[in-house]
């Protein structure tokens, strides 16, 4: 990241294999451009995303975390995404207490055909995170 003039946020995306990951592939096939900020981690279902993964991403230096899965009612595993939906607000509250602003953590639904929606969401999140600057968690320090 050394020689970059502008701050480029790092967004870790957890995308479910069946809808959003396929949708993200579609965005590619359709050559829809969106910021390189997002780095995608494929999961089988958003229900698989342990809140610890989200915290881990922030700890490792992510400026934002995006979870994207099938629309409610369309989860490949019936309702794995409902479990994610239940975890999200509590996790968001916890993150805020830990100084991680609400804007940095987002849950969305994008179907396999919504490549454009996904690309837009990445653009939007990037635009929001840029002026906020790096998250810079200081938790790594030994003392002090």
């Amino acid at each position: 990241m050394s020689k970059k003039k502008d701050f480029e946020p790092l967004i870790v995306g957890f995308l479910c294999n069946w809808c959003s990951y396929t949708g993200a592939d579609l965005a590619g096939t359709a050559r829809i451009k969106y910021p390189t900020s997002i780095k995608i981690v494929r999961v089988m279902c958003t229900g698989m995303v342990d809140p610890s993964y989200v915290v881990k991403a922030f700890k490792e230096g992510a400026d934002g975390v995006l979870i994207s899965g099938c629309h409610p009612g369309e989860c490949h595993y019936v309702e794995g995404n409902v479990k994610t939906m239940r975890r999200e607000p509590l996790l968001a509250n916890l993150l805020e207490q830990l100084g991680i602003e609400r804007e940095r953590f987002k849950l969305m639904w994008a179907s396999a055909s919504e490549g454009e929606k996904f690309a837009k969401a990445v653009q939007e999140m990037t635009d929001i995170l840029k002026p906020m600057g790096p998250l810079n968690l200081g938790g790594g320090k030994k003392i002090g």
Binding site: D25, A27, G28, T29, R31, I32, K33, Y34, T36, I40
Partner: peptide, 19 residues
Amino acid sequence: NIREQCAWTSDPGELATEK
């Protein structure tokens, strides 16, 4: 996945290579 989720969605250059 450096084609559908990188090369095809990014402009050529350093950022794409970094991703």
